[in-house]
Simulated scan of single mutants.
Amino acid sequence: MELLPESREALDEYVAPSLDDVEALLRVIEGWAVRAVPECVALSVTLLEEDLTFTLVDDATASGARRDTEAASTPAGTAEPAEDAHALDERGWAEMARERAFSGIESTVCLPVVEHGRAVLNIDLYASTAHAFRDRIDGLVEALGAWQAGAVTNADLGFDTLRRAEAAPERLREQRLVDVAVGLVAARAGLTTDDALSLLRQGASAAGVSESQAAAVARTLMS
């Protein structure tokens, strides 16, 4: 598997004392996952505190596209259920999810990693066959140090973590802008950084703009 280009860009910019080498972590997880599930074609790791996702993907999956579901949809764009389908029929929901799945992905599992009672990572694995994770989750949980009770299968057949990984560089740029603005506000107003961040958030909320937009204004005014 190869790093998504946006993940490479984000990794080149990402610095955190608590997790110095995210790429090494990705590669370790890749090794365990591919040995346990040879059908694994992609994986994502999400740092929950930072809300950043990094993704490894094979070439075929990286170039995949969503399947055409128009034939299985009503004119309003919603799937037409079978007449006898029950609203809570899990098999029916699974089939509907697969109709909207990312090309080349037939099954997924999300494994949270918990430290000191708090989830710190989500590990999402993606496979090219529908039953790739059957009878393998226990082994993955043990190998990856994940929380077994929190494991969820087939929740991301649409490969949403790919889109979050693609957005990671921009998220990092926005966070850096906020950090700089908070530092300027703290220095000018004699506040702690926590108080300066709170002030920036209040200003963003009052103006109806994002934190990064408020940070850009604050940086311009104080430069």
Rank of each mutant, 00 (worst) to 15 (best):
R136W: 00
I137G: 02
I137K: 01
D138V: 02
D138M: 00
G139P: 02
L140W: 00
L140P: 00
V141C: 02
E142S: 15
E142M: 09
E142Q: 15
E142F: 03
A143K: 12
A143S: 15
L144G: 03
L144T: 01
L144I: 01
A146H: 00
A146M: 01
A146K: 01
W147Q: 05
W147C: 03
W147Y: 09
W147I: 00
Q148Y: 02
Q148H: 06
Q148F: 01
Q148A: 11
Q148D: 09
A149F: 01
A149W: 03
A149D: 11
A149H: 09
A149M: 09
G150T: 00
A151Y: 00
A151G: 00
V152L: 10
T153Y: 01
T153L: 10
N154R: 06
N154H: 06
A155Y: 12
A155M: 11
A155N: 14
G158R: 15
G158V: 07
F159P: 04
F159K: 09
F159C: 06
D160S: 14
D160Q: 12
L162P: 04
L162Y: 09
R164E: 11
R164F: 05
A165F: 00
A165N: 01
A165L: 02
E166N: 13
E166H: 12
A167V: 04
A168S: 13
R173M: 08
R173Y: 03
E174Y: 04
E174T: 12
E174S: 11
Q175L: 15
R176K: 13
R176G: 15
R176V: 09
R176P: 11
L177H: 10
L177G: 08
L177W: 06
V178W: 02
D179R: 14
V180H: 15
A181H: 05
A181L: 06
V182L: 07
V182R: 06
V182G: 05
G183W: 02
L184Y: 09
L184R: 13
L184I: 08
V185G: 05
A186E: 05
A186I: 05
A187C: 12
R188L: 13
R188M: 13
R188E: 15
G190R: 06
G190K: 07
L191E: 08
L191F: 00
L191G: 06
L191M: 15
T192A: 09
T192R: 09
T192C: 08
D194M: 12
A196I: 04
S198N: 14
L199S: 15
L199W: 11
L200R: 05
L200C: 08
L200V: 07
R201T: 11
R201P: 08
Q202T: 13
Q202F: 11
G203C: 12
G203P: 03
A204G: 02
A204M: 04
S205K: 10
S205P: 11
A206L: 14
A207K: 08
A207H: 05
A207L: 12
G208F: 00
G208H: 03
V209K: 10
V209T: 07
V209S: 06
V209N: 05
S210I: 07
S210N: 08
S210G: 12
E211A: 15
E211I: 08
E211Y: 14
